[in-house]
Design a protein around this nucleic acid. Structure first.
Lengths: 302, 302
DNA sequence: TTTCAATATTCTCTATTTAAGAATTAAATT
DNA sequence: AATTTAATTCTTAAATAGAGAATATTGAAA
């Protein structure tokens, strides 16, 4: 019973790289050592973590199970380490974010964070709000920027706390319906006449909001023929410029485009972006993020 | 960054004993070594975990914080270890239980468990249902025997899953109202005429049930003058025998008493005892407990 | 088919770390 | 003041980790 946090990191790296040499290189140590420590971990646990087939590694079923636990242990101990030093941000901060936030809001904030605290290893993962919330719970990220699900306005805090999370609003986004330039001006949802609605995959809150808007305007969203799933905001805009689609995008993202040409925008709704984290995850690195975001507000709205 | 699970156990032991010598003895190693490893852990973390005052140890504030994390890490790694060996129960299983279950049901079950799997380190903590559920969530026990709160009959599973737990009913208890022998026979709650109701501290589901029964019988429970809090079932029975109190006890507990003399019993309600555990805590040691409990059913009711 | 390169592993050697025991220090008790 | 108790320091032996060279096995290239 002598497992080492270093051994767990080593295992996680090998599991990610699926190569002893690459892992060794990334960890800055000799491959022979990596081999030995993995073998030692395996004998300690009494299972094979990897299947060696023809000099190539795969995770064994046990390895996959153990990987989850190894990451959890590392995450808890990283949290502990930070809690013990309430003054100095340090260690790592794994941030989850919606695509839109990552595009429009984070670059500036994270750059200034990194300038101030270069010793904090920031990482960003993007995805829709719902899976991001699960990722926070599951400790695969430490905090996340999300849009509360439709219909939860005003009770975000109780929603979060029932998941063991807490959070606060940090950005206010103005959601725009984006239409081709040539589209006749509209006064209601019923006037929208396009071939498809370009959106991200389901789970995206903005997509639900778009559908709700059509529903409230008396339009059955399923009457918008093809919901066309696109992988990026640039892709969406392209679809709109092509004249066949509409899409819903926060104003702040549209402003990023060098020339918002070939499109017209109609405000749909304003919606808050929340930063959420696990209850008790009260680390200096996170507090610093929050404080930087609050500073930003002074200059950039909300 | 070289923390060892052994170092964490060592720290937890010292934190519990608040003594290097006792901890060393309990761990089977030399005191000098314990000192050194604690110092090493402290320098690794960059904080003092203990306050040394006059050769006596106290946990420092940082130490208290870290203790929580250390226990969490050990609990997760113990869980990992077990998950990797789906066939053989082993390691430890920390059981929480209501006083009544611990008294009436567990002795036989745990004895047979221990006979079959002596290598599993079983431990039992008792307490009311509500705090036990929190203890399971907080990982200070691995599973617990509880009585679902009043008013949740039929929706136990959804209640549990909203706490990240799962469970199943394992015992059926017949709750008895216990009265002094000399008390005139009763036909309803209103007939009960005793000076006080002897119960455990609040939080005990059986106590809520007793109060509910009085309420349903048209009696304001606050009209039962002193709710007298007692520390054990034997104490309760003694109060009843003394002629001044009534109490509510599962029949199975009453049957434990060598001579249920000087009391009369009236059935109040049957209620299931549930065994609950964290979702994903699917260890062989727990499965074995469940299987032993199911075997017991065949012979002893439910 | 043979050769070469890539890769995990084994082996050997050295440096580091861990653990025990003896000696030391400091307070509390008699 | 002497004794006991408890933590720490010092010293030494054993265990362990890590580097590097050597080995074996596979896949690719000639």
């Amino acid at each position: 019973m002598n497992i080492d946090l270093k051994a767990l990191e080593l295992f996680c790296t090998v599991a990610r790289e699926l190569s002893i040499t690459l892992a060794a290189q990334r960890l800055g140590r000799a491959p022979s050592n990596v081999t030995t420590r993995i073998q030692q971990l395996e004998s300690e646990l009494g299972v094979s973590l990897f299947l060696r087939k023809n000099k190539r590694l795969h995770l064994s079923p046990e390895g996959e199970q153990f990987l989850v636990y190894a990451q959890k242990i590392l995450s808890v101990s990283e949290e502990a380490r930070q809690i013990l030093h309430p003054d100095k941000p340090g260690g790592s901060l794994r941030i989850g974010a919606m695509e839109s936030t990552a595009a429009s809001r984070l670059p500036e904030a994270l750059a200034s964070y990194h300038r101030k605290w270069p010793e904090v290893a920031l990482s960003v993962t993007t995805g829709p709000s719902a899976p991001m919330l699960e990722a926070v719970q599951a400790r695969s990220v430490d905090c996340a920027f999300i849009a509360p699900a439709v219909g939860t306005e005003g009770k975000e805090n109780s929603e979060l706390s029932s998941m063991g999370l807490v959070g606060q609003p940090v950005f206010r986004e103005e959601l725009m319906l984006v239409l081709p330039e040539a589209h006749p001006p509209i006064t209601s949802a019923a006037d929208v006449a396009v071939g498809s609605l370009a959106t991200f995959r389901p789970g995206c809150t903005y997509r639900s909001i778009a559908e709700e808007w059509f529903r409230k305007g008396g339009v059955n969203p399923s009457s918008i023929p093809n919901i066309q799933e696109v992988g990026s905001y640039h892709g969406m805009i392209a679809c709109v410029c092509a004249g066949t689609s509409a899409c819903v995008i926060p104003k702040s993202v549209i402003e990023l485009l060098h020339e918002p040409v070939g499109i017209q925008q109609i405000p749909l709704k304003t919606i808050d972006t929340w930063l959420v984290w696990r209850e008790n995850y009260d680390t200096p690195a996170l507090r610093e993020l929050i404080s930087i975001l609050s500073g930003a507000h002074a200059t950039q709205g909300r």
